[in-house]
Amino acid sequence: MRNIIHPRRKFFNQILYGGISLGLSQNILAQNFFTPEEEIDWYDVKELGVEGKGWNDTTKYFDRLPAKAQGFVRDRLWDLSMNLKWTVLNDLDMPHMASTGIKGIDLYTKYNNKWRYVTTAGALVGLKTYQNKSIPADSENEYELIKNMTPEFREYKLFLPLYDGVTKLEIGIDNNALINKASPNPAKPIVFYGTSRASACASRPGMAFPSILGRRLRRPTVNLGFAGNGRMEIEVGSLLAELDPCVYVIDCLPNMNESSVSERTVPLVRKIREAHKTTPILLVEDRSYTNARFFPARKRHHQKSRKALKNAENY
């Protein structure tokens, strides 16, 4: 595998997307074998479609919330769903998460009817140098994902960045190869409404737990994790009620406290129930901070918010 930095070619073009966890995935069918770059045909992913979008009427193609949500939900949530042009000056780095997870793209393929990891496209934009070569500040990411792979017709799935957003994504294949849109998964999706924990700090996008669950359960997943902003808001509940999932997973406690959990859990669940009488709803407690035993205030925070959630469940 090799990275290519070329200011004009466009392949995996990453866009800055502060504090977002993005769980879209996309299926393609393609025959693959390495070819010289001049013999590559490029396909815009928008023409192939993505899996895991809750709404089609989005302002920008890779937005997770619908256009009508702007001005309806808090600005912060809307901001989190907007894709910004990715430049080196605004590139997103985090002190606790690998770049491959923040802005890389994972490639999986079906093997013996199971999704198997193939490789990760790492983002080089934002680095000043790589392998002793300088990287132009206005570069777009271009990454050769597959090289010398056996030429077979395969089904692939791409997992997009967990924190940075994407505004444009193109797939290049040998001009003698074929690429087709895969048949959509007819199963109802699992909808996750939560916090940054929905994407967590996985080292690459395919390792976020909604992505793992989607592969294991063979279902699409809609990942509505908003870093710092998963707060059981009724406006978001109204949008959730528009979807038709097999399960709603409500996983907001890490961004809430006892008071807000007590106030918002029941209205959120009822809002969903107005539209979906029997769809399972899973209320998830916050995971214990792994160092909570050393910080009594953290432990108390867990205990109080969990008690509030339990009380709401038994309401």
Partner: peptide, 14 residues
Amino acid sequence: MGINNIFYLNGDNL
């Protein structure tokens, strides 16, 4: 909550 099909996942040992 008086609503059916509500499930609950404890966080302590996740």
